[in-house]
């Protein structure tokens, strides 16, 4: 079961990444697209807790860092999504989360994830953009991620719930 779970999670991440760079680039607003990998990490965290979410975040971040057309210092998205997994995991409740709670979690995580990535860029990249640019991108990214939450999160959470053998269906 664990093997199946890992394979399916990896597959979901790969699909999210490919959609993000091919399909959503056509819908991009100001060049910013919804971060589907981040949404998957949040969904995992809300259903299964911080530990699997952080592992998934690490894998997804690595994918974002290395797969074409990425060209930044590798490990930056990995770091951002590991932290997203941690934050979302801490926000998880025992009961099934309400819609408002899910949206709030996504907004917070999107802000944390994009900001951590942007800040690491300020430290590491020789041609880091200015702070007003960073804030604009972070703002648009949060709006995009929240806008896509109703379409992605319920399906992803239902999927991860079905994969979870220990959990009784809520």
């Amino acid at each position: 079961m664990t093997g199946v779970r890992i394979v399916l999670s990896a597959l979901a991440l790969a699909v999210a990444l490919v959609l993000q760079v091919t399909v959503f680039s056509h819908l991009a607003w100001q060049g910013v697209v919804p971060n589907l990998c981040l949404l998957l990490v949040v969904a995992t965290a809300l259903v299964r807790g911080a530990q699997p979410a952080m592992l998934l975040g690490f894998a997804g971040g690595l994918l974002l860092d290395l797969a074409p057309p990425a060209d930044h210092v590798a490990g930056r998205w990995a770091l951002a999504l590991v932290l997203v997994g941690y934050v979302a995991g801490r926000m998880r409740q025992d009961t099934r989360p309400t819609a408002v709670a899910v949206v709030a979690t996504v907004a917070a995580c999107s802000f944390v994830g994009t900001s951590v990535f942007a800040l690491s860029g300020l430290l590491l990249e020789p041609h880091a953009p200015g702070v007003p640019h960073l804030l604009a991108v972070i703002g648009v990214a949060v709006v995009w991620d929240v806008a896509l939450t109703p379409f992605v999160l319920p399906a992803a959470m239902a999927g991860f719930r079905r994969l979870d053998p220990q959990r009784v269906p809520a």
Binding site: G49, A50, L55, V73, A74, G75, G89
Partner: peptide, 29 residues
């Protein structure tokens, strides 16, 4: 009983993942 199912993940995992990220960033940088 089920530490990974509650909010707080094991500290060793947090440290390991953060170190892994730091290593990657350093190597690539």
């Amino acid at each position: 009983d089920r530490p990974d199912d509650r909010g707080r993940p094991p500290g060793s995992l947090v440290v390991a993942l953060l170190l892994a990220c730091a290593t990657l960033i350093t190597l690539d940088y």
